[in-house]
Design a binder for these strands. Structure first.
Lengths: 193, 193
DNA sequence: CGGTATTGTCAGTAAAGACTGACAAGTCAA
DNA sequence: TTGACTTGTCAGTCTTTACTGACAATACCG
């Protein structure tokens, strides 16, 4: 409980803190909890796997929060459990190649968010088509508007399909050598504007 | 003020509502306010530009909320103001091509979020390098750890640079014919897994 | 210009999301 | 198995974000 003086100004801690804070901001920006991002950053920087107590002390968070955040990171395949023989505590480590990590994130996001949304769009499109045709058959005055709505909805559904194709193409070339080559090419594409 | 009965069950309204709700969810998923997404969806579906009162009634939101959301949509270049001569009210309409809209979104996101973050990463990398070299010069025991941290941070900064190149390449091919051709190609890239 | 219809702003409030800490459940050495 | 240590869960609380509605500012008509 007593206030111990800092053992040293700790240049290392300061460097790490900046990076951790920044990664937290980036995460928040992309819809990921800030704390989740900070833990990930800490593990990415660490030379060896860390246990929960070390993480909670370093980032000043409760172990409940830490436990939940780690569950998230595991679900996103951003970190791995490490078991050390003769050690009760569970340790965690992060993937060290950012592109491999990013690739895993995109795959997960595709699975959770893109696929369900694409499916929902198809259902909505089908429903719109049925409504429009039914209005035709009934000679309803809405028929024209319904066909128009169907066309706009179908156009958006097609966009979503193509968007998913783009993601699939990215996942196919992946974090490996082909992906690396393409990213090198990207560097030399003449900029717009 | 009196309760008028619905004029009809309105198949059109139901079709629109489904699409609007879904777009709202998609928006929320990508860090955009749900209401902002719903207004955008409504304008995308509408055959003619709409004024604020129509939007507030249709989506059951306050005009304050609507005003703020429309400001956001304008800032994202997702909708346009339309002035009709001899009409006091301002009308709004949405871009009708989803890829053109998406392109504008990405450009804006790059400007607001990617560029500042890439810059911050460079600063952090420089700072880490300076600290590591200073520790070397001082013969500090932290020197090894600092060089290690610098390497990891630099690796991530490089990833961010490449990520930005990828976005720039996308923006360069754009929503035009070249982009369309590439999206067609994407469709036939063999899938991973 | 004065009057009115429309839009913008923002303080206060409501809703959603994140965090803590107490307790439960699980794990492992002895 | 027991007992100590570690991790998981979740009700309650705190923080952040979204929304409403009253008032202010603006634009346009006659």
């Amino acid at each position: 409980m007593s206030q111990r003086p800092q053992t040293s100004p700790k240049a290392l801690t300061e460097v790490e803190d900046r990076f951790i804070a920044q990664w937290g901001e980036i995460s928040a920006l992309w819809g990921v909890n800030r704390t989740v991002g900070r833990i990930h950053a800490l593990l990415y920087l660490s030379r060896q796997p860390l246990d929960m107590e070390t993480i909670t002390k370093r980032l000043q968070i409760s172990h409940g929060n830490c436990s939940t955040s780690i569950r998230d990171l595991l679900a996103w395949n951003s970190i791995r459990r490490v078991h050390v023989p003769g050690e009760r505590r569970v340790l965690y480590e992060s993937e060290q190649d950012p592109w491999t990590w990013f690739h895993a994130c995109i795959r997960e996001r595709r699975r959770r968010e893109v696929v369900p949304v694409v499916d929902a769009m198809h259902e909505i499109t089908d429903h719109a088509k049925l409504s429009a045709d039914a209005a035709d058959a009934a000679g309803s005055p809405e028929a024209g508007d319904l066909h128009d709505a169907f066309e706009r909805i179908a156009r958006f559904a097609k966009f979503m399909d193509e968007f998913q194709d783009l993601i699939d193409a990215f996942l196919a070339v992946g974090a490996g050598p082909l992906g690396k080559a393409l990213r090198t090419v990207a560097k030399f594409v003449p900029k717009a504007r």
